[in-house]
Design a protein around this nucleic acid. Sequence first.
DNA 1: TACAAATGCAAGTAAGCACTTACATGTGAA
DNA 2: TTCACATGTAAGTGCTTACTTGCATTTGTA
Lengths: 206, 206
Amino acid sequence: MQTETPKKPEATATRERLIQAAMQVFARDGLHAATTRSIAEAAGVNEVTLFRHFQNKEGLLSAVMVHAVQSHAQEGLDDQAKWTGNLKQSLLHFGRNFYAMISRDEPFLRTMIGEAGRHPEHAKKIITDAVRPVRARFIANLEAARKAGQVRRGIDLGVAADSFTGMLFGGMLRISAGCAEGYTAEEYVNTSVEIFAAGLAPVAKP
Amino acid sequence: MQTETPKKPEATATRERLIQAAMQVFARDGLHAATTRSIAEAAGVNEVTLFRHFQNKEGLLSAVMVHAVQSHAQEGLDDQAKWTGNLKQSLLHFGRNFYAMISRDEPFLRTMIGEAGRHPEHAKKIITDAVRPVRARFIANLEAARKAGQVRRGIDLGVAADSFTGMLFGGMLRISAGCAEGYTAEEYVNTSVEIFAAGLAPVAKP
DNA sequence: TACAAATGCAAGTAAGCACTTACATGTGAA
DNA sequence: TTCACATGTAAGTGCTTACTTGCATTTGTA
């Protein structure tokens, strides 16, 4: 029994297969309804192997969270746009990337939202380690845009950043649930960016 | 045994107490983790009484959904503002009411979002019966504002309406989870409305 | 008073759950 | 060859779950 620190590379592979499977089953069935049996089955290993790698179901969940945060922290780093030019273009680029990211992990995010009140420590970890850096760089970009005269004053950029991502997030939840009436995800992002960019732009002096 | 159609008024009262308790326990523990035992305990009745009123747990959940939709459909009707005057004021009034509403039912909504993929029929019902009428009137109000020259052209008002409510909804999720950094819910709504109103306003001609 | 509806109470069922124990099998390195 | 590591297999533990059955008790009504 090796639990938590496998020596051989094949053990590490099994461990990662379990984490991947757990992420999918957790997202599909919910944290509570997901059974260790079904997770092991999805990973193609015996249920006992699951308990040899992780002390219990909670330990597996923690490992899933760590993995989810790590895989998210590595992306979004390819955003080296200028943000000092056309604000609408920059917002559109960021917004599309952001929407694609949250849309890809929609089932998992949905489960996490539903369970956030029941597992505050995991929710906090995701926020702290995964969304905060993305948010910080977005805010910094907005500040750069403001210095370039693209954003008017009198608006808290931290709140504005959360309004923008919240708008995309709320829309993604609606659209992925099939409750968007008469428009596509792309149209939603485009229109949202259109409104938001105009809302941030300095007022035109007559 | 009477199941589903009580004759005496006291039976109806018991049934409603069970529905109220179920709504709370479902929201607190999640649809799957909530047990019939704890629901009956929260309602102050015997567990057997629960099964005498509803065939099974699923039947209770359906009754909860019907009740939630009905109670929501009755509110929000006190919005007889003009919408042809100051757009920002109208949006602020609507936004505050909307935020207060979703904030009050936050645990329940959170659970529903998490479970929407697992119970599509219930999610659809909530959308169709509860959010669609509110959305329709909001859109109609935006159209009235546009006719009054308060909203520029070239923007799909259906998408805009969903962007606005999505923005408030996404912010509510963040704030209620304690992940808002350095601002209150009121500041969030104010800034969101500020940006959104400016984003919808007609461009100032030089 | 008699009756039926509504509830409580005690007990139990069958199934599923997380998790454990004991033992056999395969594999790569010393 | 040997041996520790990794996994599989089989069986079982104790607990909880949704849900049921039978019977006693209250309560409004005719």
